[in-house]
């Protein structure tokens, strides 16, 4: 198993390198020229050349790339061109906002998608199944930003008025002991919901398809012929083999999740990674953009690696037959 994981990890290194080159070139090409920005107010004709030399922008692209990567790896991310704050600090603050949002969205979505998918697969063609199908297509079709605005309107305005509350409804949840958990729950409930809808919609479809294939399999018939309870047949035997395809889809969706985070944070005005990205793009803040994108790229690659590990853990055929090429 560890051989297999190590091999997958090694295989992701070239992917990461390629991604870093692309990110570097993209940001260089489309980001604002920091030298030009600095010299905007200057009347010195030598300004551009001087600043370029100062920033090392007069060197060849490969040298600049290597320099950039060295700085990223050693943690010297420099300062934001916009606010003069340390980029590492900016990104650290943003991560503290975004990680709980993304984490809870994935947890909630996985739980809901499994429940919905399993129910549908166990009762294909039932009213519940059809209802979930319609909801899933609605969820997939609904743009996240629109859903976000709708939810904000509903919860912070309509419901508040309807119930005659003085503050948005989630802030009315009592918190007598002043627990930090309740505080975060109040804050996160709506964004997590908005971010989760599309994930639940997509993942529950996969769960349904994978499990209903599985439930028609011969080994499930064997499980039933053993006299196992239907619950054990579905949750132990059926889920074990269908979970691999859900794991794969979840990993593939890591990139989509980043997009969802950007939109959700923007709609809810949360100062996380998404908001930071939008600001950096607007300002052409290359010092923020490069580490931001490298982190996102590493995140996506780690998600895929995690999926590979999970895959191997769940399926002994993967675990035991790879690793020894003989």
């Amino acid at each position: 198993m560890w051989k297999y994981v190590a091999r997958r990890a090694l295989a992701s290194i070239p992917v990461l390198l390629l991604a870093s080159v692309l990110i570097f070139l993209l940001v260089r090409e489309f980001g604002a020229d920091p030298a030009r920005q600095r010299c905007q107010a200057s009347r010195d004709p030598q300004c551009l050349t001087r600043v370029r030399a100062e920033l090392g922008l007069d060197r060849s692209l490969p040298v600049q790339y290597l320099d950039e990567m060295k700085n990223f790896v050693t943690g010297q991310w420099g300062e934001s061109q916009r606010s003069d704050r340390d980029v590492s600090e900016l990104i650290g603050d943003a991560m503290r906002e975004t990680v709980p949002l993304a984490f809870w969205a994935v947890v909630v979505s996985l739980g809901a998608a499994v429940l919905v998918g399993v129910t549908s697969a166990r009762h294909p063609g039932s009213v519940r199944d059809h209802t979930f199908t319609v909801l899933a297509f609605a969820g997939i079709a609904m743009p996240t930003f629109w859903l976000g605005l709708l939810v904000i309107q509903l919860f912070t305005y309509e419901l508040q008025q309807l119930l005659g509350l003085s503050q948005p409804i989630f802030y009315s949840i009592p918190n007598p002991i002043g627990s930090g958990w309740v505080d975060s729950a109040r804050e996160l409930a709506l964004p997590v919901f908005v971010l989760s809808v599309q994930l639940i919609a997509g993942w529950s479809r996969y769960q349904r398809a994978a499990l209903s294939d599985e439930l028609h399999g011969d080994h499930i018939r064997t499980a039933r012929a053993k006299g196992l309870s239907e619950r054990r047949v579905v949750w132990k035997h059926g889920m074990r083999s269908s979970s691999t395809s859900l794991v794969t889809v979840v990993a593939i969706d890591a990139g989509a999740l980043i997009g969802g985070v950007v939109v959700t944070e923007r709609v809810f005005s949360r100062p996380g990674m998404g908001t930071l990205l939008l600001a950096a793009l607007r300002d052409g803040d290359t010092n923020v953009l490069i580490p931001w994108m490298l982190i996102a790229g590493i995140g996506v690659i780690l998600a895929n690696l995690a999926a590979d590990v999970a895959y191997a853990a769940l399926d002994p055929r993967v675990r035991l037959t790879s690793g020894n090429p003989t």
């Binding site: 399999g217 011969d218 064997t222 012929a225 053993k226 006299g227 196992l228 083999s241």
Partner: peptide, 24 residues
């Protein structure tokens, strides 16, 4: 019926390739 399946009566299927659970 569940008590009888695998208890008083048991069945062996045709395809041993697919009749056992691959992950256990």
């Amino acid at each position: 019926l569940r008590g009888a399946r695998g208890g008083a009566m048991a069945m062996i299927f045709q395809d041993p390739q697919s009749s056992l659970h691959p992950a256990f």
